[in-house]
Structure formats: C-alpha cells, structure tokens
Design a protein around this nucleic acid. Structure first.
Lengths: 242, 242
DNA sequence: CGGAACATTGATAGAGCTCAAGGAACGTGG
DNA sequence: CCACGTTCCTTGAGCTCTATCAATGTTCCG
C-alpha cells in the first residue's frame, strides 16, 4: 500500500507548502516506491553513491560521520520530512551515513530523475536548494553550539532544537515529544562523553527542568532552558517537501 | 574596469568547470557589477536579507556567527570562488555574517534574477544546489572535527583543509599558502581559546611541522599533520562557479 | 538463569580555559 | 625623532570542566 502523494500525511502539516496539480503529477512520477525498515537499518553510507533518494515519512533516524579512530559525530537527527541523499544526488557521493533508530517508512525517489526535475520543475529545484541551504543553516548552528558552548548549554540547545522540530511537524504533545535515541547518540551529537552527557541530563532532571524516559522527552521549563542556552528558538517559515 | 565573465580569472583554474556560450551570455546578464572592499568590511550580516549575491574574485574573508554572550564561531573561510548570500537568496535571510579580512574584489549579482536562473538555466540551478551541498559537507566535516578531536588534531585538520583549498584554486606555492587571519580568527574557527591556539601552534612550530608568519602558512610536514589529524585530505572533483 | 544493552555513579586525571602580564610591530601626533 | 596608543602575539600560573576508567544497577530477552 503505497501512499499517494496527494494524500501525503506530511503535506497536511502546517509546516509544509501546498502543491499545485502539475507539481503533484510530477511528484507521483518521481516517487518510485516506499521503503519500510527496522531500527538499526543503514539507509545511506558515507562514501556511497546511492541510486535512490528518500524522504522520511514516519519514524526517526540519525545522520552521522565515523572517524578512523572509531569516534562518531552525529551530524543531525532525521525526522519525518527529512530529505536524504541530496549529497549523493548532486555531488555523486554521500558525505555522511544515515541510519534508522526506530521503524521507519520512507518515500523512495529515483536519482536518475533528479536531472529532469531541474529541467522541468524549477520550483522543485529551488526547493531542493532551499533544503540544502537549510541543512547548512542547521549545521552552522550546531557548529556554533559545539564550538562555543559548555556542556549544559549544548544540552539545552540540542534538546530545545529537537523539540521545536517536533512541534513543527506535529509530533509534540504539549511540552512532550518523542526522543527515540540512546544517551550515546545524544553524546555523539553534542560532542560530549557518554558519562558527562548522563551527568548533565541528571542535573537538568534534578532541577525539574526536563524529564527523559521511555523515549519521551518532556521540557518542563523551556524558558530556563532558553536562558541557559542563550537562545530564543526561531519559528521557521513554510518549508518545502520533496 | 569590470572583468568580463569570459575572462574570469577563476574560470581558468583547473578546479572549475568550463562554460558554454549560452551559459556565458546568462552569466554576463546575471552579473551586475564588481565590488572592491577594504579589510574589515562587512559584506553580509546575519539576519539581513541582502538584495545582492556575491562571488569572491580576489582576497579572503570570514563567515561567522555571533552569540549573545559575545563569543564568535567562525563557520568557514571565504576564498576566491566562494559564493556568498545563497541563504538569503533562497531562504530570505542570512544565517551567518560575512566579512573581508583582506582587500577583496567580488562579482555582484542581482538576487531578483535568481528565480530566472532556476527557470531558464537548470545547469546553473543544479550548480547552486551543488554549492549548497558542498557547504553542507564542509560544515559537517568541521562539526565532526570540533566535536570529536583534540586541540592538536583540530589545528592540523583546519590548516590542512585550508591549504588544500588554496592548492585547488592555485593560491599555494609549494608547501606555502597565504593565511591572512589572526590567531583569534583561527581560535574561533576551531572552537579553542586564543591562548590555547597560540600554544598549540607553538608546539607545531617547535616540531618543525609548520611555520606561520607574516600571513604566510607553510606546511613543512604534511604527512605528520595528516597522521595527527587522522585524515587523508581528499582531492575534490571539478566544481561549478557562479 | 545468564548475557546483552543501556543507564547511572564515583574517583581521578588532564586538556584546555581564564586571568594576568609582557613583548613586538606599527601608526599617529607632537 | 620620540612618546604613546593600539593591535596582535607570546608566555606563565592556577583552576575548572570534561574525559576516562571502573563498577554497579536495571531491564529485557533468549
């Protein structure tokens, strides 16, 4: 049972732009199928040249880079709506790996159609650049946090950021959102050791600022988190969906 | 005296793709002028919505983000060939600032023409996405270095990376390349304090691994630097130039 | 029951930060 | 020509934050 693009569950979210009839026709042709994967499944490998592009429909995952010494940097979290494989699509090679952390459902696109998209669908082409620029923005923000902030600040920044992404795609419920990651994943995302990540989380729990259990993150005192992280979280504009 | 795109000095470099006649015509129309600036001149401001896009022709600069507490993260170095303002172009707002550190000459493009580019020049549109994806790649690499490496490793990684960029655009001379930045800039790029940056540089100088004086960086022992940084520097493929 | 995966906690050490001071190079004005 | 301010680089000392090492606890599953 493949979801028709016209009934795309993501598209209904406020966060996404609507699609014209013509655009819909193209998307239907561009989409070649759906993929369901189990937790832990690798979706894209650094250095590979995937023939397929994906948009996450359901579930969550991780983008990460591995170092020769075995260390790992989590580059970003993958949420519904994330477009995967753009680097391979335009540069011919993925610069990071992607793997599922929950069961996921993904739209599958044919990379060889990408060039047609640029020729016949300039709006979609523009959207792709938008997505790449947005990814650049996120990474710049992460770089700034990791480069300039203390462990406590990074933690508040990272969890606030994740929470607001969940809000935008309708996954949050009040001050709660899913967080299906291990502390090790969070540590690798924030550039901290596992032990220190755990202790930092504990402090925030003791102060009643948040709770995190059974894969559910609950931000009890966002204002204080924003104060600690020295940021006010922006509300993003309408975003495209490929 | 405005440089004609046909005689673009960058275009002659090996690193860049060549341009067809039609493409040349478009570039000439897209380019609205040239801009010369002194060191220290701000080119783009975070949060601004610049009506102009730039390609650096000569000189060097910095991309950076400022934090409310006054700290600064240098997000990337700007070299000849760098395209500036894409975020404002597609997202409507710059997510970092850009400023010149040396005298610079820049090609100026009209942002309002960007949409025409997507409609009538799919190759160029593809190139823009390529550039954005490349920027994403660089940032991911920087994030990984800063998140997972020691000060010495980051230093070797950062300087090697800068040197190879210079090689690619013909600015290197043997093991030497220009490096017109203060140690404070380097510190802000690597997420280190100024003092520790200085001491780390000193260690590398004492070991005869590099020298850095009068704005000239000289990598005397790149192999050892690669060993320290745990990387082998990739040689990039042909890149587009906008 | 035993093992695996993950979370938690304590102890210790060290990498890197901050503070403080001094030196070198350069431009400006008297 | 010299005094002075500014900017940047350099160096030392002390301290703190975070990493590492080591154990234990918990849950889940075969």
């Amino acid at each position: 049972m493949v979801t028709d693009c016209a009934n795309c569950p993501l598209r209904k979210q406020d966060a996404y732009e609507t699609l014209s009839g013509d655009e819909l026709t193209f998307m239907r042709r561009f989409k070649v199928g759906e993929l369901k994967v189990d937790p832990g499944t690798p979706l894209l490998m650094e250095g590979s040249n995937s023939p397929q592009l994906f948009t996450a429909l359901k579930g969550m995952g991780l983008r990460y880079k591995l170092l020769p010494n075995g260390r790992r940097q989590v580059v970003n979290f993958v949420l519904p709506g994330s477009f995967l494989g753009l680097q391979a699509g335009v540069m011919g090679e993925m610069k990071h790996s992607v793997e599922a952390t929950t069961p996921m459902v993904l739209c599958v696109f044919d990379r060889s159609e990408l060039w047609n998209l640029y020729k016949s669908e300039p709006e979609r082409a523009f959207d792709l650049t938008w997505l790449a620029a947005m990814e650049e923005h996120f990474l710049g923000e992460a770089l700034t946090s990791i480069g300039q902030m203390s462990a406590m600040q990074r933690m508040c920044w990272g969890l606030l950021r994740f929470y607001t992404r969940c809000v935008d795609i309708g996954l949050a419920d009040g001050d709660r959102c899913p967080f299906p990651y291990r502390q090790q994943d969070l540590a690798d995302a924030l550039g901290l050791s596992l032990v220190h990540t755990n202790k930092t989380l504990m402090k925030l729990r003791e102060k009643q600022i948040l709770s995190l259990e059974d894969g559910i993150l609950s931000l009890r005192d966002m204002e204080q988190m924003e104060e600690i992280a020295l940021i006010e979280i922006e509300r993003p504009a309408k975003r495209p969906l490929i």
